[in-house]
Design a binder for these strands. Structure first.
Lengths: 236, 236
DNA sequence: CGTTGACTTGATAAAGCTCAAATTTGGTGG
DNA sequence: CCACCAAATTTGAGCTTTATCAAGTCAACG
């Protein structure tokens, strides 16, 4: 299956490739804003995003929401559930999406049989954690416009690495409220921040399509350093 | 060595125990506020904290600092370096500390030979990521006093699980600036927040010792739900 | 063509920052 | 034991950033 798409990260032996291809998967199309896993669930499978966007989030009292990450095709947003029984957060689609479910059992067997595959998947969850850290500094130490700029840069590189974006432009199926919930801002303030970035002509954003007109300026303004995405291998 | 301390998380076979005990380690005492690994380093070893506190952090332009996590004895703050070549952040001591260094090579061999050990270590990095997520909601969606309360509750449970705290009290070798850098607050505002918590007599904090007088009130005020620490196994 | 959800704008308030100046504390050398 | 120093804590005042509340616009869609 398309799972090998993700495993272009490192070199796989033929045997490993074969073992992965034999994993039982269930492919399912989903509508937008549909839950894939909910907080407190005890899932028995992981999901590989084949198409569309998803996010991980948590709802707090008073209806506040924190979004932890955005996910694009090739990601396995709940890979961690392989070793953690209960979800501390939910996963839901943002756009309509196509998802492949892989049961935990065979996946665990696979990692036990092939330490190389285990290392790749482990590494994937570590990159995840590195992105969390980058978001933490955004939430804690960056101004609103720096945080938005940083997010846009990050998403571009992730999409580009998967061959889903080029020329500094991409489809961005996020509402301003969703951006706010990710960056710890109100939807109103996100709106003003976007206006500011548009005003400087650094970006063009309309109809769910983002174009970064001044990559250098945008990246410099927020000290964007792509090292934390650990994309080196994918480029190769 | 004391590495098995950490591996009380799950049941180990004798063989696994033996293999762990044979890992080559170098134990070293360190003074307070000393770097263990720096951002952009390419370490060839991991460090296990045997005694004292450490933290992971990143410095941004203009001297701002974001602290990502606090670490206590039993933690391996840079375990992720096993699968990521270059550090995207630094690790330093907070108090004076004792650290055991374990080279990557034999550790990698160990995980390849014992998938069970690999799973435990992997899981450890996943709990780490879960704590990052909890901090993200603190940074993004909680008020200053909620965030401080949440941090104090988290640290108590982590310390208690390692047998380093009881009766809702513990040594807290952090300055107010360090707390601020962790929670995205200025040192001044941390100070006022602490005053507020002291005023309600929820906590007593002096001379580096924290006592939580009203656990229920403190935990409720910040919606503290310890599930994300995944401590179940350790209790057993 | 009316409804809905997203976006936009304005006005006001709150949370938290910065700067600056005490005050306290913990150590250190005499 | 005391004087002294540096670091940490505490307090005050004014200022920014961002939140909140309230309208109003716009576009998509049945």
């Amino acid at each position: 299956m398309l799972i090998r798409k993700l495993d272009g990260i490192a070199q796989l032996s033929d045997e490993e490739r074969r073992a992965i291809a034999q994993l039982p998967v269930t492919v399912r199309p989903l509508g937008p804003h549909q839950d894939i896993v909910r907080e407190k669930d005890k899932p028995s499978q992981c999901c590989l995003l084949l198409d569309g966007w998803a996010c991980r989030y948590q709802i707090l009292s008073e209806g506040k929401r924190q979004i932890f990450s955005f996910h694009i095709p090739g990601d396995i947003p709940d890979l961690h559930s392989l070793h953690m029984r209960v979800m501390d957060h939910g996963v839901c689609t943002l756009s309509s999406a196509i998802v492949a479910f892989v049961p935990h059992e065979p996946l665990r067997d696979l990692t036990a049989a092939f330490p190389g595959i285990a290392a790749i998947l482990w590494r994937d969850t570590l990159v995840d954690a590195a992105i969390f850290r980058a978001w933490m500094t955004g939430l804690g130490r960056r101004t609103a416009s720096e945080a938005v700029a940083h997010l846009f840069c990050e998403l571009y590189l992730k999409l580009q690495a998967m061959g889903l974006a080029r020329d500094h432009a991409y489809r961005l199926p996020l509402t301003q409220s969703e951006i706010g919930d990710a960056l710890g801002l109100s939807n109103v303030h996100v709106n003003r921040t976007l206006r500011e970035l548009r005003g400087k002509d650094w970006i063009t954003l309309q109809g769910g399509r983002l174009e970064i007109n001044k990559w250098q300026e945008l990246a410099n303004s927020c000290d964007f350093d792509p090292a934390y995405l650990y994309l080196e291998r994918r480029i190769a």
